[in-house]
């Protein structure tokens, strides 16, 4: 257990030491504050909107930015060690490859959580001072961390392949573009091409291939009431909460298992 924690602690402190956490948390906080303070922007007024409006806007920010944060955090975790030569060192110590992978994963998840916590704390205080509830803000923090965790784990798995960091960065950004930006465009294109005649089952199954969509649906279903789902026209075509949880757990664990397997073959 000590080895897991030591690797995790080192990974966490590395990101504190190199300023990653502070830089990203401040950037995220600035975006989140603007969104919170300009919550009524869509009505043509300036001011903090109601709970639902603010959280919907923030969840969009989370949906676009957090997967990228997760990928950027994880893509060089093993590749960086390999390029510095320190992977040779780590592998020469009495520590197993899964202790290295899991330890790094724990450390990076802590980095992600602290970054998002710091990034959301000021907007949360602003929101609370305008009468919003803390429960939903906490849920937003946890959902954001889970979303980032899934993409971080995907990047960690990719990082175990013997590719250069530049290539891995390109793959990570490509993955973000496909799953976060292009997936929705492609999905709408598919609906248009089929004149909206895809069955709900097919639509539901398409969503399973994208963890970002799954987590967005989980956010909508657990943080907002049925009216939001109806407003978005998603009633009947998105997976239920239980299915979403199972699918998201698989998306969270599978890349970690694959990464551990890949590392064990070094």
């Amino acid at each position: 257990m000590q080895q897991y924690l030591e690797v995790a602690k080192k990974e966490f402190l590395d990101h504190i030491r190199n300023g990653w956490v502070i830089a990203i948390a401040i950037s995220f906080m600035v975006f989140a504050c603007i969104i919170t303070l300009a919550g009524l922007g869509f009505t043509g007024e300036v001011g903090v909107g109601d709970n639902k409006t603010t959280l919907m806007s923030l969840s969009s920010l989370v949906f676009y930015l957090v997967p990228l944060l997760g990928l950027l955090l994880g893509y060089d975790s093993i590749a960086g060690e390999r390029e510095r030569g320190t992977l040779d060192l780590l592998l020469s110590y009495p520590i197993s490859t899964h202790q290295i992978i899991v330890g790094k994963w724990i450390g990076l998840v802590c980095v992600l959580f602290v970054t998002l916590f710091l990034g959301l704390i000021v907007p949360t205080i602003i929101g609370l001072s305008f009468g919003q509830t803390i429960g939903q803000w906490f849920a937003l923090l946890m959902m954001s961390t889970w979303l980032g965790l899934i993409f971080l784990t995907l990047a960690l798995w990719l990082s175990t392949y013997p590719w250069e960091r530049a290539k891995l960065l390109g793959i990570s950004i490509g993955l973000w573009l496909v799953l976060v930006i292009l997936f929705d465009v492609g999905f709408i294109g598919l609906l248009v091409a089929t004149s909206g005649e895809l069955s709900n089952t097919i639509v539901e199954n398409i969503f399973y291939i994208n963890p970002a969509s799954l987590l967005r649906f989980l956010m909508i279903q657990t943080m907002f009431d049925q009216s939001v789902i109806n407003e978005l026209g998603l009633q009947g075509s998105i997976p239920g909460v239980f299915s979403l949880l199972i699918a998201l757990l698989i998306w969270s664990a599978l890349p970690l298992v694959l990464a551990a397997r890949k590392m064990s073959r070094y």
Binding site: D14, R17, N18, R84, T86, L89, S92
Partner: peptide, 13 residues
Amino acid sequence: IGYLPEGAPAYPD
């Protein structure tokens, strides 16, 4: 075993 890899890699930060 004590091992010194080529170039004596370490964590620069």
